[in-house]
């Protein structure tokens, strides 16, 4: 009983506290670098698309708002043929970024993307792709993956032995 009265009283005292509200848009908010806002697709150090179309972001998305189609260039390097995020469904949970094995999809501290027309919230690859490596400069997935997709030959990647001579029986 007393605790109830006490909490009523303490709540009442908040009348005299300073308010925390930031008067956006007159005042801008300072966001952290890891703030989960607009979703972008970043590029490799060689300026190619980082996304390899593995569908993990789409699978991780709890509202299923990512749709893409993987395709390959003649060297076997995969990239998305289309990559679509329906931001009218997106909840900015960041699961796609967590799921991405190539650091391609990243959430950045920009949230000012409201539209009057819902249709304009459907972002295609052209709208998502940025000309930057984002939070992970220097990383190139194909350098650490075994696959030869035109980035490096077999056995030339990080921590790889030269290819096995299959005609040899030597140990």
């Amino acid at each position: 009983m007393l605790s109830i009265i006490r909490s009523i009283w303490l709540t009442f005292l908040h009348l005299f506290h300073k308010t925390e509200t930031i008067q956006y848009p007159e005042e801008k908010v300072q966001l952290r670098p890891r703030y989960r806002g607009r979703i972008v697709l970043t590029r490799d150090p060689d300026n190619q698309e980082r996304c390899v179309g593995c569908y993990l972001c789409a699978a991780a998305c709890p509202v299923d708002c990512i749709a893409l189609q993987a395709t390959e260039n003649e060297e076997g390097r995969r990239y998305p043929e289309f990559f679509r995020i329906n931001f009218s469904r997106c909840i900015f949970c960041g699961f796609c970024e967590e799921a991405c094995p190539t650091y391609a999809i990243q959430l950045i501290p920009d949230f000012e993307m409201a539209e009057y027309d819902r249709q304009n919230l459907v972002y295609e690859k052209e709208d998502l792709l940025i000309n930057s490596q984002g939070k992970y400069p220097g990383y190139n997935y194909y350098k650490v993956a075994g696959l030869d997709a035109g980035v490096k030959g077999k056995g030339e990647g990080t921590n790889e032995e030269p290819p096995v001579d299959r005609h040899s029986l030597l140990p």
């Binding site: 299923d64 708002c65 749709a67 819902r118």
Partner: peptide
């Protein structure tokens, strides 16, 4: 059950 992209695959035509 992990079918993905339901709310995006056709949204280029109509967001609804």
């Amino acid at each position: 059950h992990r079918y993905s992209g339901r709310t995006a695959m056709l949204s280029n035509e109509n967001v609804s």
